[in-house]
Amino acid sequence: MLPYSDNIRKYAKDTIQSEIDAMQKMHDFVDEAFVEAVTLMHKAKGRIVITGIGKSAIIAQKIVATMNSTGTPALFMHAADAIHGDLGMIQPDDVVILISKSGESPEIKALLPFIKNFGNKVIAICGNSHSYLALNADHFINTTVDSEACPNNLAPTTSTTAQLVMGDALAVSLLQLKGFTDRDFARFHPGGNLGKRLYLKVQDLSSKNAQPQVTTTASLREIIIEISGKYLGATAVLEYGKLYGIITDGDLRRMLETNSNPSSLKAKDICSKNPKSIEATELAVQALELMRENDITQLIVTENNSYAGMIHLHDLVREGLI
């Protein structure tokens, strides 16, 4: 162990604890002004324009991303660029959020009067209740912290965490008021594994697979050929066109271990009846849950209670759902 490893752990834990303590105080700042700000944003006909300078600008970009992904149209405007032409992105019905720790940054003080002259409502997320920004905004959300986690009380650490937490509180409050659901979330996250969990259907995967099937009177040879040829490690067993059961490669191994004359057996003698199944229109992630609950690797896929194919655990692995 390195001689200074204990110090490193202490530095890290002290930083985390400092920020935890500061965030506990944020509860007190969810006051009537916060409620009024959320109400304004919820009723706004335009977008939410969020701006800041320095580290606050980075926090502003993250809050914009969170709002956009949860159904609140938002865009980022850098405070330094705003007075050099970017003010043109603000439309009459937009609500503007200015983020600043001190509320006294030259860029913020220069920007605020222009926005007010446009007639847009301004929400301040600020760590100084006596600042120019806090006193001149229409709504003030307090993010005051006693000190930064930085031992010199200089580097924005706890203060930017407070801004981020309040931004999340705004976004989630708006999400709840809008009745935003996981289906809505999926529409804004079509890419990546997260999106797949929210929109990928069983039929999207099973339709690419073969549909292994034998009748209840199929011989052992026919069963083996069907399972081997369709590459899903199982076959459905049908009787008069209706699903009767399933035979997996595991069923075949167990049958061979216990039966001294397997050649005379038919599919009806080997299969497992009432196999686990899932409707083609269900989410693929629900197929995964069923497989995990029942410790199986294949699921029969049905459409209107009729056999429609099969989905394998490998399909879900390939799509990144595991």
Rank of each mutant, 00 (worst) to 15 (best):
N274P: 00
R9Q: 11
I99W: 05
G71M: 10
D315V: 02
N117M: 10
I123W: 00
R197F: 08
A79I: 01
K196H: 12
G127H: 10
P3T: 07
S260F: 03
N305Y: 09
D81M: 06
A65Q: 08
P262I: 08
N128T: 02
A65W: 12
T161N: 04
K121H: 12
Y240W: 01
A22W: 06
T144F: 11
E289I: 07
S100T: 09
F118S: 11
I270H: 10
T160W: 12
L135F: 00
V317G: 00
G192I: 01
T248H: 05
L299K: 06
D6Q: 13
N152V: 04
R221S: 14
N128G: 06
G229R: 02
G88D: 04
G191I: 03
A137P: 09
Y244K: 15
T70S: 13
P275F: 05
M1A: 12
E282M: 13
T70H: 02
S206V: 02
H189F: 05
P3K: 14
L265H: 06
K45G: 15
K10T: 15
P3F: 08
D251Y: 02
Q24K: 11
H42F: 14
T248Q: 09
A124K: 00
L321N: 06
T181E: 13
A287R: 01
G241F: 07
L265R: 13
M89L: 15
G127S: 08
K276D: 07
E148W: 09
V122Y: 01
F114N: 10
M41T: 09
V96D: 10
I223L: 14
F185E: 12
S5D: 10
A74T: 06
C150G: 07
A12D: 00
P92E: 11
K121W: 00
T39G: 02
K242H: 11
T161R: 04
E279L: 10
I48P: 05
E19V: 11
L177D: 09
G46P: 07
V49N: 04
N152C: 03
G245A: 05
G245V: 05
N294V: 02
L200M: 14
Y240S: 14
S277Y: 08
P3E: 15
V301M: 11
G229H: 06
Q176Y: 02
E104T: 05
I63T: 05
D184M: 03
A234M: 14
G241T: 08
A37R: 04
D21P: 01
A171W: 00
Q17A: 06
L154I: 14
S260P: 00
I311G: 07
K43C: 02
E107C: 09
L313M: 15
S5I: 14
A169R: 04
L265K: 15
T144N: 10
L154S: 05
D182K: 13
H84G: 08
G127N: 12
R47T: 11
L154Y: 10
S159F: 11
K116M: 04
G250V: 04
S306K: 15
L265C: 07
L75C: 11
L316N: 06
A80Q: 12
G250T: 05
L135A: 13
D251T: 07
K268N: 07
S260M: 07
V301I: 05
I108R: 03
T217E: 13
I115Q: 08
R221G: 00
D6S: 13
I16L: 15
T258F: 03
N136E: 07
L232G: 06
A74Q: 07
G233D: 10
H42Q: 14
H27N: 15
